[in-house]
């Protein structure tokens, strides 16, 4: 499985779990406006869950500025070991 596909699958799993939506599909351009329930609280639990799933940690600036799926995916691909 390529790194990108694995990342996509695991990230989809985290999003589905976090937003309690078992059929949610995520695209790079999706953000807080296009995914229902993505408010500031859900953003924090999303970040905590992604950190756990991929064994990465986000810096303060990243947590504050990451606001679309693509930004998150980029950092995971860069930082996570697959």
């Amino acid at each position: 499985m390529s790194k990108e596909i694995e990342c996509h699958e695991r990230l989809t799993k985290v999003f589905r779990e976090n937003f309690d939506n078992p059929t949610l599909e995520i695209e790079d351009e999706h953000n807080a406006d296009s995914i229902p329930g993505w408010d500031s609280l859900a953003h924090v639990t999303l970040i905590v869950s992604i950190e756990e799933e991929f064994g990465v940690s986000f810096s303060t600036a990243e947590i504050a500025s990451l606001n679309c799926v693509g930004d998150i995916r980029k950092i995971i691909i860069e930082r996570a070991e697959f």
Binding site: D20, T45, E52
Partner: peptide
């Protein structure tokens, strides 16, 4: 448990 696991159990 981790916080994420607790969230899942809470759901």
């Amino acid at each position: 448990l981790t916080y994420r696991e607790l969230l899942s159990l809470s759901r």
